[in-house]
C-alpha cells in the first residue's frame, strides 16, 4: 500500500491489489465508519462546561474574540508549538545553493500586460490592507494571525508570480523573518515569568498588547513561510520541466 508510490502523471490510478481485496477493504472501512457513527450517536455530548469557563474568563484574556483568546492566551502553548511546526517545514524546504543577492532582487522583466499591472497596483496593496485589518479585527471578531498571514502570503505569492522579483531565502534577513514568530513568542513567554510567576501568563493589564505583539510577529513569519513553501515548490517544478522537452510538450498542446 505504501511500498509502491507512483510519481508519473500517467501512472495507473490505483494500486495493483485485486478487486476482491479492494472491495472487501472498502466494505470493512465502511463498516468501521458506520460503527464509528453509531458510537458517536450512542454517547451524549458533554455539557459545555469548558466553553462556559472560557467565555467567563474572556474578560481576563486581553481580547474579546473567544477563539483568539483560546489560541493566544488560554491554550497559547499549542499555538507556540504550531508556529514551530511551520518553521520545521520552512527550514526543510530552504533552497540549497545560495544566490549572492540581497533579500529581494528585481530583474529586467518589467510586466507590460494590463492585467498584471492592475494586479500589482490594486489587488496586492488591497490584500496587504485586508491582512492588516484581519489581524486587528482578530481581537474582537473572527480573524487573527493565521488568517492575516494567509492573505498576506497570497499577496506575496501573486507578486512573485509576476516573475519580476525574486526572494533570496538564505539571507540573514530572510531567516530572521522565518524565525521571528517563534522567537518573539518564546521571548514573551519567558519575560512574563518575573511578573506573574508562570511562563505564558500575561499580566492582565498588558495581555492585549502582548497578544498583539505576538500576533504581528506571527503574521509576518506565517506569511513569509507560506510564500517560501509555494515559491520553492514552483521553483523546483519549473527547474524540473525546463531541461526536459518531453515534459513541456504536453503543456504546449493543451
Amino acid at each position: 500500500m505504501f511500498n509502491k508510490l507512483e510519481f508519473e502523471e500517467n501512472a495507473k490510478k490505483t494500486t495493483r491489489t485485486s478487486r476482491l481485496i479492494k472491495g472487501l477493504s472498502a466494505v470493512t472501512i465502511g463498516l468501521l465508519g458506520s460503527m464509528l457513527v453509531l458510537s458517536v450517536i450512542s454517547a451524549e455530548k458533554a455539557a459545555p462546561e469548558l466553553a462556559q469557563t472560557a467565555l467567563d474568563s474572556i474578560s481576563l484574556s486581553g481580547v474579546e474574540n473567544p477563539v483568539t483568546a483560546v489560541l493566544l492566551n488560554f491554550r497559547s502553548y499549542d499555538t507556540l508549538l504550531e508556529i514551530a511546526v511551520l518553521l520545521i517545514v520552512a527550514v526543510a524546504m530552504m533552497p540549497e545553493s545560495s544566490r549572492n543577492t540581497s533579500l529581494t532582487a528585481a530583474n529586467s522583466r518589467v510586466p507590460t500586460h494590463p492585467v498584471l499591472i492592475g494586479l500589482i497596483r490594486c489587488v496586492i496593496p488591497l490584500s496587504v490592507i485586508l491582512s492588516a485589518y484581519l489581524l486587528w479585527t482578530g481581537a474582537y471578531a473572527p480573524g487573527g494571525a493565521f488568517q492575516a498571514g494567509a492573505v498576506l502570503a497570497g499577496a506575496g505569492v501573486a507578486l512573485l508570480l509576476v516573475k519580476r522579483w525574486q526572494l533570496n531565502y538564505l539571507r540573514l534577513s530572510a531567516r530572521a523573518f522565518m524565525a521571528l514568530g517563534l522567537a518573539v513568542f518564546v521571548i514573551v513567554a519567558a519575560t512574563v515569568i518575573p511578573a506573574t510567576g508562570r511562563a505564558l501568563n500575561y499580566p492582565a493589564d498588558y495581555a492585549g498588547a502582548l497578544i498583539l505583539i505576538i500576533e504581528v510577529a506571527a503574521t509576518l513569519s506565517i506569511a513569509f513561510v507560506l510564500i517560501l513553501l509555494v515559491d520553492q515548490l514552483l521553483n523546483m517544478a519549473n527547474k524540473q520541466v525546463k531541461p526536459q522537452d518531453t515534459q513541456t510538450e504536453g503543456l504546449d498542446k493543451s
Binding site: E49, A54, S57, N73, F74, Y202
Partner: peptide
C-alpha cells in the same frame, strides 16, 4: 502554563 490551570489551559 499561562496560569489558567487544567481544563482551560494546558
Amino acid at each position: 502554563l499561562g496560569g489558567w490551570g487544567a481544563p482551560l489551559g494546558i
